[in-house]
Design a binder for these strands. Sequence first.
DNA 1: GTTCCGCATGAATCGATAG
DNA 2: ACTATCGATTCATGCGGAA
Lengths: 291, 291
Amino acid sequence: MNRKTKIYLGDSKKVLKDFESNSIDLIFTSPPYADSRKNTYGGIHPDKYVEWFLPFSNELLRVLKPTGTFVLNIKEKVVEGERHTYVIDLIHEMKKQGWLWTEEFIWHKKNSYPGKWPNRFRDSWERLLQFNKAKQFNMFQEEVMVPVGDWAKSRLKNLSKTDKKRDNAKNGSGFGKNVSNWLGRDLVYPTNVLHLATECNNKEHSAAFPDELPEWFIKLFTKEGDFVLDPFMGSGTTVNVANKMGRVGFGIEIVKEYYKLAEGQLSQNIFVDEPKVKYGKTKTGRRKKIR
Amino acid sequence: MNRKTKIYLGDSKKVLKDFESNSIDLIFTSPPYADSRKNTYGGIHPDKYVEWFLPFSNELLRVLKPTGTFVLNIKEKVVEGERHTYVIDLIHEMKKQGWLWTEEFIWHKKNSYPGKWPNRFRDSWERLLQFNKAKQFNMFQEEVMVPVGDWAKSRLKNLSKTDKKRDNAKNGSGFGKNVSNWLGRDLVYPTNVLHLATECNNKEHSAAFPDELPEWFIKLFTKEGDFVLDPFMGSGTTVNVANKMGRVGFGIEIVKEYYKLAEGQLSQNIFVDEPKVKYGKTKTGRRKKIR
DNA sequence: GTTCCGCATGAATCGATAG
DNA sequence: ACTATCGATTCATGCGGAA
């Protein structure tokens, strides 16, 4: 198997056929939501969502290592005043395929989409469903420990951002690794709620999640050199982060426009890794803008 | 119908038979969790949970007003390394009964139960499933507005405590109503994530939730004089809070020990409401301790 | 180089209007 | 009647320009 980060343009169901069975350590993805991203995959109707998704999850089950983990970022839409059931239906059907539904993490979004309606408040959270092939899976809990106390969450957020910048400036790789060093001590294990802000940077791909999201799960479920897959790559956040963290990232995207975005991001990231542009201000600035 | 707060000792399925149809404005409850509170209703096995719960929800559907709301606090247990599906199964079955699954709020528990396991982190959130009989239901959004900005959550917590105390000292009822006045302006609507601490006050009933939880939903879904029902009353938090807020509370509990707890709490609360003990420090202190 | 302020902008949802 | 489109609503965040 290819040991270098690589992205593919095409349908995951087909592209994955060339992937070896039991080869991937972590699958982290945020598939197109029902009725969103209409250009992609023809825009899936909520009632057809499960049926549409199952062929993908079946192939993902095959390529995942027995010790690997599949983290699915998803949230059901409101349809005619009710939460649609396609997500909980999907859990049932994936269990039938052989997946274990190990855990449900919550992404508590600090800045959720605004709006006011007579019958509901702003939706401020998304599901991060953890699936596994076996009850024994790799989990490196120490890698995601956080400072103790009330201030932990906001502090961590600021820390990780600052830390990343400084770490990038110094060696251009493995950002976030040294978070613990900055605070030094009194670390505790986190919970199953992640409290992160969405990012509004990415003008060209609206559905991007913050780096911190895949970063957290990559730290938790993989070690350096492991294989990370995002079958609905989008603008490539997961693959890019995985690559920066010294993992081997694989990304698949069917929309050429998004693929190109990811390609640009990734090549830039690799470029930054080269010694000669270690202090390249222009590149750094531009990378930041495109994210 | 009885217009005074009242609690019943018995099985909700039977007690509710005497309740009029379409009479309750809000049902807020945290039923015995699967395999928890084993004395209650014989301790329900996760695999039997849905089957066990449906007769209750069917009766609740009957007594709820068409404009009313049912808020169900629940979280699935881990069984053999997996999250059990009885909660999502329950959503399906309740929809078949005629319930609308309008929304899923998250209770993000600030101080979750401690512990460490090799394959999962501490569970730090619970579901608050909102069900309705009709798409048009009462919702008084202005009653739960919060201060803007980063400081909102911690600020609100302090505010509501102070406010409650001062409000109680002055007139002994309707705590929390004037929260907005203390800050004065810049209030925003909240989201569907509630970030509250659990309370460990109640030593005698382990499954108790904080006052703020029913308080928030009572403010949101009812006005003064409305009827609030908790068919799995436990130590009586919901009924007690409802009563303090000028609503008519109905509580049903099958375990005599819990019923007695609730009875003691409630009589104390009513006692406090009487003018002559307006400044009774002892009573206030004790009530606070027992919650 | 800071800090401060104004402004645009979202994985949204409802209800009304148009076809 | 049923579907598609559009305007109104709302707030945390990051950006750019100004002091």
